[in-house]
Amino acid sequence: MDKHDLEQGETLAPRYDASGLIAAVATHADTGEVLMLAWMNAEALERTLATGEAHYWSRSRGELWHKGATSGQVQTVDELRIDCDQDAVWLKVRPQGDGGACHTGARSCFYRAVEGGRLVRRP
C-alpha cells in the first residue's frame, strides 16, 4: 500500500510492530478521560471490531485478553479510530461494571502525577 492510500484511503491496514502489536489508547466515550494504554495484535483488533467490546494482547501473560472478562470492567466500544499512519488505535469506550479501567481498581490507569520527581496519587 502506498503512503497516500495508507494515510488518506479507506482501507484498514494496521501497521503492527516487529512483535505483531499496535498501541491502543482507550478513553471514556462520555468524558474523554484517558483510561488506559494497552496493546493489540491482529486477533485482538479483529475481535474488538467483531464484538464491539475491547480485546487486547497481554504482553505480560502472552495471551489474548477480553477486557472485563474476569473483573466485570468490560469496555463497550463506542468508536474506534486509527491514526494517520495506521500504527496506533484509539478506542472511545463505555466502561461497564464499577466503571474502572485499571487492574488496581482505579478509574484510570493514569492515577498518578509526577511532581518534583515523585509520584503523587490524583483522582
Rank of each mutant, 00 (worst) to 15 (best):
residue 1 M to K: 15
residue 1 M to D: 13
residue 3 K to I: 15
residue 3 K to L: 15
residue 3 K to E: 14
residue 3 K to P: 13
residue 7 E to C: 14
residue 7 E to P: 12
residue 7 E to W: 12
residue 7 E to N: 15
residue 8 Q to T: 14
residue 8 Q to P: 13
residue 10 E to K: 15
residue 10 E to V: 15
residue 10 E to P: 15
residue 11 T to N: 15
residue 12 L to N: 11
residue 15 R to V: 13
residue 15 R to N: 15
residue 15 R to P: 11
residue 17 D to E: 11
residue 17 D to H: 11
residue 18 A to N: 15
residue 20 G to Q: 04
residue 22 I to A: 05
residue 23 A to Y: 10
residue 24 A to L: 00
residue 25 V to D: 08
residue 25 V to P: 04
residue 26 A to Y: 04
residue 26 A to F: 05
residue 27 T to Y: 08
residue 28 H to D: 13
residue 28 H to L: 06
residue 29 A to T: 07
residue 30 D to T: 08
residue 31 T to Q: 10
residue 35 L to Y: 01
residue 35 L to C: 03
residue 35 L to W: 02
residue 41 N to M: 07
residue 42 A to E: 12
residue 42 A to D: 12
residue 42 A to I: 03
residue 42 A to C: 10
residue 43 E to C: 07
residue 43 E to V: 08
residue 45 L to E: 04
residue 46 E to W: 03
residue 46 E to T: 11
residue 48 T to K: 02
residue 53 E to F: 12
residue 53 E to K: 15
residue 54 A to W: 02
residue 54 A to N: 08
residue 54 A to I: 07
residue 57 W to N: 09
residue 57 W to P: 07
residue 58 S to N: 05
residue 58 S to H: 09
residue 58 S to C: 03
residue 59 R to T: 12
residue 59 R to H: 11
residue 60 S to E: 11
residue 62 G to T: 04
residue 63 E to H: 12
residue 63 E to I: 09
residue 63 E to G: 11
residue 66 H to L: 04
residue 68 G to I: 01
residue 69 A to S: 12
residue 69 A to L: 05
residue 69 A to Y: 11
residue 70 T to K: 05
residue 70 T to N: 09
residue 70 T to L: 03
residue 71 S to C: 05
residue 71 S to R: 03
residue 72 G to K: 01
residue 73 Q to R: 13
residue 73 Q to I: 07
residue 74 V to F: 10
residue 74 V to T: 14
residue 75 Q to T: 04
residue 76 T to F: 05
residue 77 V to I: 11
residue 77 V to N: 06
residue 78 D to H: 11
residue 78 D to G: 10
residue 79 E to Y: 10
residue 79 E to I: 09
residue 80 L to A: 06
residue 82 I to Q: 02
residue 83 D to V: 02
residue 83 D to T: 03
residue 83 D to K: 00
residue 83 D to F: 02
residue 83 D to R: 05
residue 83 D to I: 00
residue 83 D to E: 08
residue 84 C to W: 06
residue 84 C to E: 06
residue 85 D to N: 12
residue 85 D to M: 06
residue 87 D to L: 03
residue 89 V to R: 06
residue 89 V to F: 03
residue 89 V to Y: 01
residue 90 W to Q: 14
residue 90 W to V: 14
residue 92 K to W: 05
residue 92 K to V: 05
residue 93 V to S: 03
residue 94 R to N: 13
residue 95 P to H: 04
residue 97 G to T: 05
residue 98 D to A: 12
residue 98 D to W: 08
residue 99 G to K: 01
residue 103 H to S: 05
residue 103 H to K: 04
residue 103 H to N: 02
residue 105 G to M: 02
residue 106 A to I: 08
residue 106 A to S: 12
residue 108 S to N: 02
residue 109 C to R: 00
residue 110 F to L: 01
residue 110 F to P: 01
residue 111 Y to S: 07
residue 112 R to W: 00
residue 114 V to D: 13
residue 115 E to S: 14
residue 115 E to P: 11
residue 116 G to I: 02
residue 118 R to E: 15
residue 118 R to F: 11
residue 118 R to K: 14
residue 119 L to R: 10
residue 119 L to H: 09
residue 119 L to K: 09
residue 119 L to P: 07
residue 120 V to F: 07
residue 121 R to G: 14
